[in-house]
Design a protein around this nucleic acid. Structure first.
Ligand SMILES: [Zn+2]
Ligand SMILES: [Zn+2]
Ligand SMILES: [Zn+2]
Ligand SMILES: [Zn+2]
Lengths: 140, 140
DNA sequence: TCCTAATTGAAAATGATTTCTGATTATAGC
DNA sequence: GCTATAATCAGAAATCATTTTCAATTAGGA
């Protein structure tokens, strides 16, 4: 039996390469969002050394496919997170420890209605992110 | 009587300089979001030449004060927009012509409740932006 | 196995944004 | 108005995360 991400990649017509698997394994094991460079460092530790551009490329691809979530951060650097929840939802991200937690709330329905009726426009995508401090960070 | 932004700047203890006024005038006259470089170009046209770093610095300052809105864009470049509406609200931005329109909807109340009750965390800030095509761009 | 397109690595380029430093300027107080 | 002083500014240079290039390698289907 192969890696748990085998089928996932195949389904998306992405070749199952050691780099991709390593990237997914690393992110899936983290409850926090990581920068490409951090993923790259962890790959070295696992002796799945890869080029930094490869990491960037794969993270971008995988997030474009919806496997990974790109976290929008005020510092405008790239961050990625693996979220197993495949329903549409948004995230609460801890600005202190980088933990990501799912939010069930999404106001897209109301927004879409407003955009269509009042603005006569069409929604293409939307972004919602909540920044704050998680339970542990509040306690600490 | 001075420029309409005089009082606004004074109230925030920011010196009233020709550069700042020019930046505000330019953005207030635009129904779309602009990059720092575009603001800079328009300043040259108005013969209020400024250094690009000055434009960057002021845009950042003014958005930190809440006078300008920083538009979060998928391309991760900086964009600024002058929004006269001083109530908390969010924006619908046209990815085709860059027009910005106000949305009345904000789900922060529900989100805040969820974060406090379910996650035991605290919301610090939130980001919501809706991308799409405006009425005119749909027609064109 | 063989073929082909996809993937990768190393090095180099990119380019928006920021930093640095020494002028210049707005403004408060006299 | 004049002065002192901190804020602001210009220009050049630096930064540095991210992307591009291109030749070599590899995965997956025929
Ligand atoms: Zn935390
Ligand atoms: Zn999630
Ligand atoms: Zn438009
Ligand atoms: Zn809101």
């Amino acid at each position: 039996m192969a890696n748990q991400f085998d089928a996932l990649l195949r389904r998306l017509s992405l070749k199952v390469t050691p780099k991709r698997l390593a990237i997914l394994e690393i992110l899936a094991a983290e409850p926090i969002y990581l920068t490409p460079e951090e993923v790259w460092t962890r790959m070295k530790r696992k002796s799945t050394r890869a080029g930094l551009p490869t990491v960037y490329r794969n993270l971008e691809e995988l997030s474009a496919c919806g496997i990974l979530i790109k976290i929008v951060h005020p510092d405008r650097r790239l961050y990625y997170y693996f979220c197993p929840n495949d329903h549409h939802h948004h995230h609460f991200v801890c600005i202190s420890c980088r933990k990501v937690e799912d939010l069930n709330f999404c106001g897209l329905d109301s927004i879409d209605r407003e955009v269509r009726k009042s603005l006569k426009g069409a929604v293409v995508s939307h972004l919602m992110q909540v920044y704050g401090r998680c339970k542990e960070c509040l306690a600490g």
